[in-house]
Design a protein around this nucleic acid. Sequence first.
DNA 1: CCTTGACTTGGAGCTAACTCCAGGTGTTAT
DNA 2: ATAACACCTGGAGTTAGCTCCAAGTCAAGG
Lengths: 128, 128
Amino acid sequence: MTIAQVSRQYGISADTLRYYERAGLIPPVGRGAGGIRDYREEDLRWVEFIQCMRSAGMPVETLARYVELVRQGEKTAQKRKSLLVEQRDKLVIQIQRLNEALEKLNGKIMRYDQQLLNTEKKLNGETD
Amino acid sequence: MTIAQVSRQYGISADTLRYYERAGLIPPVGRGAGGIRDYREEDLRWVEFIQCMRSAGMPVETLARYVELVRQGEKTAQKRKSLLVEQRDKLVIQIQRLNEALEKLNGKIMRYDQQLLNTEKKLNGETD
DNA sequence: CCTTGACTTGGAGCTAACTCCAGGTGTTAT
DNA sequence: ATAACACCTGGAGTTAGCTCCAAGTCAAGG
């Protein structure tokens, strides 16, 4: 699979895909004739994983550290797990924050609904 | 209340508080003798709101637009509401994304647990 | 053979959101 | 009155995460 196809499939620009690889978020993708990237099934699973984690705000640097550990082999399993656990904990906290903001927003929106309703009533001379 | 006190109370640096004000995220705070900021109850509620929204990732520019609408008075109520609704919708989507990432992380972590357990068993010669 | 088009690299440029700094002012303690 | 301190402003600097660009390579079509 070429970089253009991967880009279309996942909605990630080719520039970003190359950037991710340079930054070590995706292990080096194999090259075909003329040094052209050929994404294999395994690469696509990395792309998916990275896309998911990035869209949740996980830092590039952290993901690069994880990939590096994977590349170092089996012996780093323990470290990798604790890295993931750490990130999960952060994610849980962040979800809490978003939910708090959501509640606050909902409260405000409800108050606007109420207020706008009243304004309308006033304009209608309270006829309904 | 001085900027230092607000900073301590909310865990936001004085620099950031001033930046927020300059950027229009907080309506201009009243000044006492020598042009020193004196945060009133109303200002603190703004700080709280902004802190909550920013920690949920709402852009500074969007918040500034909201504040501007509030400053323009009652007639912008409709616009303000739709701005908030828009942001809420984005927030809901973002929460979904975080939850997807959370699930993926949990899956990976469980697999590591399993794998690490097996490794241990092998080392123990399957004695337990 | 020459052009077109998709790819390559290394590096520069951009935006958001702070964060820091220099130079200045006003209040307070010695 | 002079030093220390907390504050002020305008502006420069920093970081993360892309995003764009120039110059070059290669395969395919006319």
